[in-house]
């Protein structure tokens, strides 16, 4: 069992709020991702779980026991750092073995456990090397092996993939998820990359400026965003957000007019529409100048300029149009999200 609860967690540095009012329950064996832009408090939250940082206020509870004030070395958490943090003076083997030595695990078990962990991350051939002689991906895997070797109470991963190239990142994502499922260890994973969050998480916690914006499964976060921040942060390219006025079920902004929206709402609103819910058509809601066209092979991203707003549209892979010409786009009214213009909160 490994259930972690954060109750009213605050972290202040002088007048600066690093983390405020975080309430969160991490379930046993769950893969939880803390997602947000840099400076949103996600790493601080994780460091407080690790015990590397003490909350200014609030309680951290592990299996019903408050662990505030318990030193990092006594919490039995394993962490994978962004910079890998391997011990440069030791070989990979010694690196992986280090936590076993420090935790007084009988030396007779060491060799088997180190080799099993190394095998799990496909690092068996490199055990004699020092970290300096490894590639970035291998270092990352060595750090991962060091974390899994002692089968800790909880895994913490602080942007472990951000120093890898795109292809390697995709491979490591799959591997990390596989290992987590196999070992069934509660995992907290910090990232600013929404694709990592979507692909890895059982649940995502979206954070901004030290506060939680939304907690939910990847599907909930994607299809049912709580506010404009979440809507604009998730998705690649992200959701189009256009401010305008809603009256009698009709939304109007510069160059855009959409009918058929709920007529019980009104006033200044922001509408959100995902690029994949827009289609290029002869007749539609928006006609504007083509500002950009990015063919990627399997899909073509079309950028339209309406007033000072840029609208992203996912078009067919064969769609081509010269820059500066005009295009017309239709939205699926059922897939339009409405947000309050002042607060950014979702209107339902």
């Amino acid at each position: 069992m490994a259930r972690i609860e954060l109750r009213n967690i605050q972290r202040k540095w002088g007048e600066f709020w690093g983390v405020r009012d975080v309430n969160l329950a991490i379930e046993d064996r769950e893969f939880l991702v803390l997602l947000g832009p840099s400076g949103c408090g996600k790493t601080t939250t994780m460091r407080m779980i690790a015990g590397l940082e003490e909350p200014t206020e609030g309680e951290i509870v592990m299996d019903g026991e408050v662990v505030n004030g318990v030193d990092a070395r006594d919490r039995d958490v394993a962490m994978v750092f962004q910079g890998y943090a391997l011990y440069p003076n030791m070989t990979v083997y010694e690196n992986i073995r280090f936590p076993l030595r420090m935790r007084r695990i009988p030396p007779s078990e060491h060799d088997a456990r180190v080799r099993r962990a190394a095998e799990m991350v496909e690092l068996s051939e490199f055990l004699d090397r020092k970290p300096a002689a490894l590639s970035g991906g291998q270092r990352q895997r060595a750090a991962l092996a060091r974390a899994i070797v002692r089968e800790p109470y909880v895994f913490l991963m602080d942007e472990p993939l951000s120093n890898l190239d795109a292809k390697l990142r995709q491979q490591m994502r799959v591997q990390i998820k596989y290992i987590q499922r196999k070992l069934q260890i509660t995992t907290v994973y910090v990232t600013h990359d929404q694709i990592e969050a979507m692909t890895l998480a059982d649940r995502i916690v979206v954070m901004k400026a030290g506060a939680i914006q939304q907690i939910g499964t990847p599907d909930q976060i994607y299809h049912d965003p709580a506010n404009t921040f979440v809507a604009g942060f998730i998705g690649s390219p992200p959701m189009n957000l256009v401010a305008g006025r809603l009256e009698g079920g009709t939304f109007s902004a510069e160059g855009i007019r959409v009918d058929g929206l709920p007529d019980r709402l009104g006033g200044d609103v922001v509408i959100g529409i995902r690029p994949e819910d827009c289609t290029v058509a002869d007749e539609g809601h928006l006609s504007a100048e083509v500002f950009g066209l990015e063919p990627t092979g399997d899909v073509t991203y079309l950028t339209l300029r309406a007033g000072d707003k840029l609208i992203e549209v996912k078009a067919d892979r064969s769609y081509r149009v010269p820059l500066g010409s005009g295009a017309t786009v239709a939205f699926d009214p059922a897939r339009i999200y409405l947000f309050d213009a002042a607060t950014g909160e979702r209107l339902r």
């Binding site: 070395r73 011990y87 280090f98 420090m102």
Partner: peptide, 17 residues
Amino acid sequence: DEEVEEAARLDGASWFQ
């Protein structure tokens, strides 16, 4: 590297270790 020290702490090492 401070991260290395933190990693060692989480691995269960005392300051002297």
